[in-house]
């Protein structure tokens, strides 16, 4: 029972990290912090992975001392596979984070803000501009002059009379 509880706490901690990370990504607006939140979530996933190979009273899967000569070892070892996987996934995480940071730098350079809302706004405006579409968002912020519809110059009576 205690083993189960400890296990559960461990797993629960990993899951908790994941959820915290996700909540961070969703609720934060500063893009640098969003990256940090992502890092937390990744840490949670990695933790989960490494716990999957955890055994009570087991040693690290490295042969030392007499174990070297007495193969296969009699001592209980933890699962080496998740450890290898975690190694891989940490490095992967580093790569992604570095790229995300580079993007943050460039986004900041271009938009002079770290606020995701503002960035999103400006990005949509940019896309609309480059595709020549009048932005939906521009309705909310009119830019001074707005072209009025052309006045009806035709005499309605004349044209109506013919029809």
């Amino acid at each position: 029972m205690t083993t189960n509880l400890i296990h559960w706490l461990l797993y629960g901690g990993a899951m908790g990290l994941i959820v915290i990370g996700i909540v961070g990504v969703v609720t934060l607006t500063n893009i640098f912090r969003i990256i940090l939140a992502l890092v937390i979530a990744e840490a949670g996933a990695n933790l989960l992975l490494v716990i999957a190979g955890y055994r009570f009273d087991a040693i690290a899967p490295i042969l030392t001392g007499q174990a070297l000569s007495a193969m296969p070892t009699t001592q209980i070892m933890v699962d080496p596979v998740p450890q290898a996987m975690v190694l891989t996934s940490i490095v992967i995480g580093v790569g992604v984070q570095a790229l995300a940071l580079a993007l943050v730098l460039k986004v900041y350079k271009n938009y002079q803000t770290l606020d995701l809302r503002e960035i999103h706004h400006r990005m949509l405006a940019d896309i609309d501009h480059s595709s020549g579409v009048i932005s939906l968002l521009s309705e909310e912020q009119p830019k001074g002059e707005r072209p009025l519809p052309e006045p009806e110059t035709k005499n309605v009576l004349n044209s109506g009379g013919e029809k």
């Binding site: 990256i35 990744e42 992604v96 460039k106 938009y111 999103h120 480059s130």
Partner: peptide, 25 residues
């Protein structure tokens, strides 16, 4: 390398990163 491309890619990276966290889980 346009500003919009960077912003869009950043959002892509974030959602994709979260996705891989879920997949890894």
């Amino acid at each position: 390398r346009t500003a919009a491309a960077f912003a869009a890619t950043f959002r892509y990276v974030i959602i994709s990163g979260l996705g891989t966290v879920l997949a890894l889980t």
